[in-house]
Amino acid sequence: MNTSIKVLIVDDFATMRRILKNILKQIGFKNLLEADDGTTAMEALEKNDIDLVISDWNMPKMTGLELLKWVRANKRYAKTPFLMVTAEAQKQNVIEAVQAGVSNYVVKPFTAEAISEKLKKILK
């Protein structure tokens, strides 16, 4: 797994961004950017060469699902791996995310091992 890539973490809760950053740093990732909602994430994507997006679903202004659809509809980012990390665990949520082109899906609460395993699958 290439840990030198640039990762964008999107979540409206700073606590969750810190937890994910801690886990990613333990795995070896160093280039970590943050956004607290979908619209800020769009700006970060436009200004940086992001290699992986890890996003929450339920956020104000723009949801993670809307961000995912925007990413997939934009030629520049269409193939960027996108991991949804969300408390939305109902079947319909997973179906919508898969239909929108999510790379993988992690339900909160999660372990560090679960995040690591999903990233290995996405970035292999």
């Binding site: 809760f13 339920n58 969300t86 408390a87 939305e88 665990a89 109902q90 339900v107 909160k108 609460p109």
Partner: peptide, 8 residues
């Protein structure tokens, strides 16, 4: 949020 999600 997580308690809500898991319960739902």
């Amino acid at each position: 949020n997580m308690v809500s999600g898991q319960a739902r």
